[in-house]
């Protein structure tokens, strides 16, 4: 009997090995959020990012002078400021006072370089060269002088992982600024869309889209993009709205982290939901 089993296993060893490896892989997939796995990942990320950073610095030898970085920071500050003022114009005074606890009066920004990118149609991730030691925390928004890029989902001592807008696992509460309609923005692999906006709202191509007051992942009023297409679905009752982001996300080499976690408790809950 034992002989038979041994022969059977050796005859089909490839299949047994495949099943075994698949089971281990699936259990790894299901244990992504375990602290032990996170620790290993943080260590690996930090160690490997050093190599990537070295290669990356070779490619950026010919650009990014310090003065340009400074101007970029100023641009990002101004972009946020302009948008805040635009919001003030649109909001009425009573609503503003009601929501003032979520107002982002000051925007501490920290500059970072993209060290490596995971580029595919579904999962857009960056690794940046700032981490815990620079005060970065999970849940901080990432942007550049044009607009929102993504959110920090993991940090090691000197590096962090950014989940970009081009990641199908990231959903963001946004507002179409001109008509103050809220929706959920998500990446469908091809474009950023806001689904299920009633056709009674007059959404126009070119309307600005910003992060919503309802989002506790992001502070309100960060520019995201503009409406590029409007499609009617569900018997003409609802619109599906395509958004073109202000930022060319995959061309980004330098960015800023907004040193702000709106509400740690809510943020933790939302980050868990996001996973």
């Amino acid at each position: 009997m034992i002989k038979f089993i041994t022969r059977f296993i050796s005859q089909y060893k490839e299949y047994f090995l495949l099943v075994l490896l698949i089971i281990v892989s699936l259990s790894a997939l299901s244990s992504n959020e375990k602290p032990q796995v996170k620790r290993i990942r943080t260590f690996a990320l930090g160690s490997f990012a050093l190599f990537s950073e070295a290669v990356n610095s070779l490619f950026s030898l010919f650009h990014a002078e310090p003065s340009i970085d400074e101007l970029r920071r100023e641009n990002a500050d101004l972009m946020l400021e302009v948008n805040r003022l635009r919001n003030y114009k649109i909001e009425n005074e009573s609503l503003r006072s009601l929501l003032s606890f979520k107002d982002t009066a000051s925007y501490p920004l920290i500059y970072a370089d993209v060290v490596s990118k995971l580029v595919n149609k579904i999962q857009g991730n960056f690794i940046i060269n700032r981490g815990n030691s620079n005060g970065l925390k999970v849940g901080m928004p990432v942007l550049n002088e044009r607009g929102l890029i993504g959110i920090i989902t993991e940090t090691s001592d000197n590096f962090s992982v950014v989940k970009t807008l081009y990641n199908s696992n990231l959903n963001i509460a946004v507002t179409i600024q001109n008509i103050q309609v809220d929706g959920v923005l998500s990446w469908n692999g091809n474009e950023l869309i806001i689904k299920n906006i009633p056709t009674t709202y007059n959404v126009r191509v070119g309307d600005a889209v910003v992060t919503s007051d309802f989002s506790s992942l992001f502070p309100p009023g960060i520019p995201v993009g503009t409406v590029s297409k409007r499609e009617t679905i569900s018997l003409g009752l609802l619109h599906s709205i395509s958004i073109t982001p202000y930022t060319d996300i995959y061309a980004v080499d330098n960015l800023f982290v907004l040193m702000l976690v709106t509400s740690k408790e809510i943020n933790k809950l939302e980050m868990n939901l996001m996973k």
Binding site: L29, N32, R41, A44, L45, F48, L118, F126, I127, V161
Partner: peptide, 10 residues
């Protein structure tokens, strides 16, 4: 998976 920041196991 570890070094790319993606989903571990994918």
């Amino acid at each position: 998976d570890l070094i790319s920041g993606g989903l571990i196991g994918a």
